[in-house]
């Protein structure tokens, strides 16, 4: 019973404090693996890879997955609901006070402060995921090539997922992994 309550608290906290979209939930999910050991960081980066190629917002996918890994179907349901709950209430409140919200100086100042923090948190996560997923010279070379492509022109995220999946299949066929 306690685990479900803890799940609710942790994921509600994620929903309330993560700024910058689905990937911004990752610093919190890594923090949970440090504190509660419900899953390992390696498991989390696998969940993220699967979530990225599954329908739905990545943040929802990865919350469902982490909840499921922690305590099965009910865990998945609790994690998904509690990660959305803060958004749900906040958006409805803001919808009612829309004009005031946009003009409020304190709200704007708070957002000005917490956005770069969200960016800093995600940068730390990027390093973690890099360490978990890029182990070999081959992986590092593929990473560099993909990174180079991002500088050339703006592409859909699906492009990078597609390319990396295909490269993975090819590497698998030739037993390079």
């Amino acid at each position: 019973m306690l685990i479900y309550f803890q799940l609710f608290l942790e994921f509600f906290r994620i929903g309330l404090f993560s700024f910058g979209g689905g990937y911004a939930t990752l610093p919190f999910l890594y923090h949970i693996s440090d504190v509660h050991h419900w899953y390992t960081p390696k498991q989390l980066s696998d969940m993220l890879a699967i979530s990225s190629i599954t329908p739905g917002p990545v943040g929802v996918n990865v919350a469902t997955f982490a909840g499921f890994t922690t305590s099965g179907l009910l865990g998945a349901l609790i994690a998904t609901t509690s990660v959305i709950l803060p958004s749900y209430f906040l958006v409805i409140i803001i919808s009612k006070l829309l004009e005031k919200f946009k003009k409020n100086k304190k709200v704007q100042a708070a957002i000005y402060g917490l956005k770069p923090a969200g960016c800093g948190l995600l940068t730390a996560v990027a390093l973690n995921i890099f360490k978990d997923n890029v182990h070999s010279i081959l992986a590092f070379v593929i990473f560099l090539v993909l990174l180079g492509m991002t500088f050339k022109q703006k592409r859909d995220p699906l492009f990078y997922l597609g390319i990396s999946a295909i490269v993975g299949i090819i590497a698998g066929v030739f037993h390079l992994i």
């Binding site: 990937y23 990225s52 960016c119 995220p157 990078y160 990396s164 295909i166 490269v167 992994i177």
Partner: peptide, 20 residues
């Protein structure tokens, strides 16, 4: 597993794009 191996690298790029 090969797909996951590859997508794992792609995900690093996606997170970096989100950072950017």
């Amino acid at each position: 597993n090969s797909i996951f191996w590859g997508v794992g690298i792609g995900v690093v790029i996606l997170v970096l794009l989100a950072v950017k």
